[in-house]
Design a protein around this nucleic acid. Sequence first.
DNA 1: TGCATATCTGAACACATACTCATATATATA
DNA 2: TATATATATGAGTATGTGTTCAGATATGCA
Lengths: 124, 124
Amino acid sequence: MKHIKKDKCDCRIIHEEKVNEARQRALDDLVTENLCETFKALGDMSRLKVLWALEYQEMCVCDLAALLGITESAVSHQLRLLRTLRLVKNRREGTILYYRLADDHVSQLVRIALEHIQEPGVKN
Amino acid sequence: MKHIKKDKCDCRIIHEEKVNEARQRALDDLVTENLCETFKALGDMSRLKVLWALEYQEMCVCDLAALLGITESAVSHQLRLLRTLRLVKNRREGTILYYRLADDHVSQLVRIALEHIQEPGVKN
DNA sequence: TGCATATCTGAACACATACTCATATATATA
DNA sequence: TATATATATGAGTATGTGTTCAGATATGCA
């Protein structure tokens, strides 16, 4: 069952079939990058707080800045990223821009991640 | 309805009720940090590839290294992080450690994120 | 015990990124 | 048009992070 294979190049492979299988099933690199960007967007305290707040109600930039305790500029930078990834949308009312979640994927992602971190730790 | 409030301090708040509401509903900081760490773990090409591979079959460190095209050391570092966050588990067979997903939360998270990025882009 | 293999760990470095500051843009109103 | 407000943008900077390299641990076997 085991193909012990040691080449001179440092790509040492123990289970060749497994690696080949994994290669075939691998996601397209572009898809993986998009996935990566999305998770990266969620992996930041400021953006996470923004998204959590927007899950309940739409809010404008300066309110979010007050909520997070950072400058409006910083919030704006983050919102641009979230907009680019289609995680949030906005609507204008005069000079004020109200941001809201783009769809319920964010809610679902956060809910599942919450489940995960609250799950009791098990030995291996 | 609008409380225009401009203080000398730069925490300008337009909708005070919204900010207060958001503050009350805000997640505990420690919980947010854990959430953040979890998403951060998913927001990396190497770790994402590892997790995607492990969703189908358990694999050992050097096979994962071969699959990703990085050193075994790099994979090991990443696996330690994933283990710490209880995203993967391992079992030992001789000198070989086989890694697998800890539960199906990762699968769910990736599936939802995939849905999100594949959703057709809509104007605002 | 001694050697080989598989994995882990710490240090160092190159690169990414989140923030602030200064400034620009957009909308509303006088 | 001129002014004020809300937001966006670009540059600069300090911190974070993923990688490799060198060396340490751990298990198996002669």
